[in-house]
Amino acid sequence: MTETVTVRVQRYRPEEDTAPWEQSFEVPYSEDLSILDALNQIKDQQDPTLSHRWSCRMAICGSCGVMVNNEPKLSCKTFLRDYREQAAVTVRALDNFPIERDLVSDISGFIDHLETVQPWLIRSEEQPVSAGAYPQTPEQMQRYAAFSQCINCGLCYAACPQFGRDPAFLGPGALALAQRYNLDSRDEGAAQRMQWLNAGEGVWSCTFVGYCSEVCPKDVDPAAAINRGKVASDINYAVNLLNILRGKDDA
């Protein structure tokens, strides 16, 4: 008899169900088995109607985010061995996103937010490629390095109660990406991106719960990015106020 583990999987089939429900499976245990392996085992051997996203199985493509026992996790980087003490492992679709089906979340809101913050290098004057690389020392790179590690998996959005309350909040991933460019010594677009940080849907929806940074599988620390953004937005607010008092236009 091989040892098995009970995996309870959330199901939601939009064509049949009005609300999600839970289905139990017994999966043969092994030391190396990830939650993703377990889901694939279920799909291949037990119930082919289970739908979940996955691809790289090495925690870099960002496809396979799910809630494992109520915590946002990459299923490929989470192992059954870490849940052996518990009676069962429960796998659900990511919190705070609409559920397309089973474990597949609708992350389009998050992607829209990413696109909003102008996440590309902005230069006042574009240098021709023939002029060579823009210089950047390792120290300068270090200033934005962590914020450039985001794999867009959406775990931070599932962890963020403010995004859960109001999906218009640009959220941890998008704001960290804005800061990734703002802090890049080659970029000159911080002033343009300021409008997104300044908004109520920008950094000011954040109450520094900090759970986004705890669940981030790539140590991006989006909470730090947002709260440094608050300082920047704060200064921007004061400068703008001074300009208005001096009779200049609202920037």
Partner: peptide
């Protein structure tokens, strides 16, 4: 998106 007055 509009500027928030939260900074105050």
């Amino acid at each position: 998106m509009r500027r928030s007055h939260e900074p105050v």
